[in-house]
């Protein structure tokens, strides 16, 4: 555990310092951004749609049960979506979709000596592999979080119109009472923070991958589990900090 922490810190520090020296790998970074955004978009849109629908139905059910009135549901659900649901669900899906892919790719490169081959060319593997993925996940995380927020709110609005009796105008009016622009900013900050975690943890496990199919499988599993845990912890810390604003 301590050994993992030390090597993770070393790799992260190395990545930060190498970001300030050439070469800047713009092409690779945008290729990774395309991979992150394009390949995860549909699954994220699909999943957050249902997550938002469940959220608004459950909110209404609990409010009716406790206070016998669900008039505040649109605003309450919209705030929950923006401050929590959109960013976290997106990050967890990105972890399983992109993080697992990064860990497997880097792990396979490690076990097939491709990383040694990069070193033999004088290429810094952290700069070549980690930085473009870090850039892609930070910006991809922010973009996808905004998309997820919009999709969530739209699907929550549809469900509240069809099943809860709130027209879109009522939903938007309720939402405007509770939701502020800063909630969207918090959501984007969360998306970017989770975007930092996913590639760093995944590359860390990839670089430490043991040979064989079992080694790659273990690196992938460990990266997904660790990223998910770290995301949930960071979510708690950020949520706590944001309650003060």
């Amino acid at each position: 555990m301590f050994e993992h922490f030390v090597s993770f810190t070393e790799m992260t520090t190395h990545a930060i310092f190498s970001a300030f020296r050439p070469p800047v790998r713009i092409k690779e970074s945008f290729q990774q951004l395309y991979f992150v955004a394009n390949q995860s978009l549909i699954i994220i849109v699909f999943c957050v749609c249902f997550a938002a629908m469940v959220t608004i139905l459950e909110s209404s059910f609990h409010m009716r049960l406790v206070v016998q009135n669900d008039s505040m549901v649109p605003g309450f659900a919209a705030m929950l979506i923006l401050r929590e649901l959109g960013a976290v669900v997106t990050a967890l899906l990105l972890t399983s979709r992109v993080g697992a892919g990064i860990a497997a790719e880097v792990g396979l490169m490690q076990t097939t000596e491709q990383i040694d081959a990069l070193k033999m060319l004088g290429i810094d593997p952290v700069q070549y592999l980690v930085l473009p993925r870090l850039f892609a996940c930070i910006f991809g995380g922010m973009i996808l979080t905004i998309v997820a927020d919009l999709v969530c709110i739209y699907s929550a609005m549809l469900v509240s119109d069809m099943y809860l009796g709130f027209s879109p105008a009522m939903f938007i009016s309720g939402m405007r009472r509770f939701v502020h622009f800063k909630d969207l900013i918090f959501s984007v900050i969360k998306g970017a923070s989770f975007g930092v975690v996913i590639p760093l943890v995944s590359c860390h496990f990839g670089f430490r991958c043991k040979s064989g199919a079992e080694g790659v499988g273990l690196a992938t599993t460990n990266s997904v589990v660790t990223s998910s845990i770290v995301i949930i912890i960071i979510d708690f810390v950020l949520s706590y900090l944001f309650t003060h604003f």
């Binding site: 396979l108 097939t112 000596e113 491709q114 040694d116 033999m120 060319l121 004088g122």
Partner: peptide, 16 residues
């Protein structure tokens, strides 16, 4: 110095 060194790896290490 690195540019003067070439290596063929056991598993070839080709970029797949």
């Amino acid at each position: 110095l690195i540019n003067k060194i070439g290596m063929l790896f056991q598993k070839n290490a080709l970029f797949d």
